[in-house]
Design a binder for these strands. Structure first.
Lengths: 138, 138
DNA sequence: GTGGGTGCAAATAATTTGCATTACT
DNA sequence: AGTAATGCAAATTATTTGCACCCAC
C-alpha cells in the first residue's frame, strides 16, 4: 500500500528492501520472526542479508512503525500492528495471536498511579495451548 | 530459612549451592539477574561457576520455585516470589519492581474464554521511568 | 556528490553443553 | 555404591558490528 509514504513521512530513507520488509509485516497476522521475514523478502530480493533485516526491524521498532514481541529467551517476533494489545502464544505449535477482546487501556494509568512511574510501554503476554493443540491431546 | 526443605519436598537433590541460590532469591526484592546471583553466592562459595547458577535457576523455574522475568533481549532476571503478578522496570536505571496493587486474576480467565486457549502462564510487564529517574530530568 | 544503506563475514554476549571430578542419598 | 551436581572450558545461537561498495537524495 503506502509503505513508502510511511517511511518518507518519518524521514527514513526509502529503499526497496525497507518497503518490502514493512509490507511483509503490514500484510500478515502471523507475527513473523526475523528468519521468516528474511525468507519472504528473499523471494523478491535474493541478495538481501539477514543483517539488513535485523537492522531494519530494529529501526522500525524505534520509529514506532512496528512492535517487537519478545517470546522465549533468544527469539523475538514482530507485529505490524502498532497499538498496544495483549498477545497469546501456543507453547506447542509456537503460533502467536493478538488478543483484541481484552481491554487493558485502563491498567496503564492505574499502574502509573500506584507506582509513581511514567509508563511508556506495556507487554501483556499469555502462554498456553491453542484449541488445535489441545485437541491432539499433548 | 527452610530452603532445604523446599528442595527436599520436591525431590530435588540438596546441595549447599542450591540452598544458597534459593536463599538469595527468597531474601531480596531486587529481582537479580544471573550475574548478580553469581556475585552474591560467590562470596560464600568462591569456586561456584556461572554454569551452575544458570542450570540452577533453570531448574528452579521449571519446578516453580522461582519465576523468570524476561527483560530486554538477552537478559533475564529472577523473582523468588512465585505468584503471578505484574512487574515494572525503569528504562533508565534498570530496576525491576513488583506491582502488587494491580489485580489481574480475572484477566486470565477472560483470555481463556475469548481465545479458546488453555492458559498456563502470563507475563505482564510495564516499562517507563521511575520516580527517582524522572526527577533527574531527561 | 555525499551520507547513509546494504551485503558479507567476523565479532559479541548470554546461555548451554560435554566431560572429568566431587558430593548427595 | 551409584547417580546426579559441580566446575571448567568450549560450543551454541540470536544478534551486532566493521567495512567496502552502491544507491537514494
Amino acid at each position: 500500500m503506502n509503505e513508502e509514504k510511511a517511511l518518507r513521512d518519518r524521514g527514513i530513507k526509502v529503499t526497496p528492501q525497507r518497503i518490502e520488509i514493512l509490507s511483509v509485516l503490514k500484510n500478515t497476522r502471523e507475527h513473523p520472526g526475523v528468519d521468516q521475514i528474511y525468507s519472504q523478502v528473499k523471494e523478491i530480493f535474493p541478495a538481501i542479508s539477514l543483517a539488513t533485516v535485523y537492522n531494519t526491524v530494529e529501526l522500525f521498532t524505534q520509529e514506532g512503525l512496528i512492535q517487537e514481541i519478545r517470546l522465549a529467551r533468544g527469539f523475538s517476533r514482530y507485529d505490524g500492528s502498532v497499538g498496544s494489545h495483549p498477545h497469546i502464544t501456543c507453547l506447542k505449535c509456537g503460533k502467536v495471536e493478538d488478543i483484541e477482546e481484552l481491554k487493558v487501556e485502563m491498567l496503564a494509568s492505574s499502574v502509573e498511579k500506584s507506582t509513581g512511574y511514567e509508563v511508556l510501554k506495556e507487554e501483556i503476554m499469555y502462554f498456553g495451548y491453542c484449541h488445535e493443540c489441545k485437541r491432539l491431546d499433548n
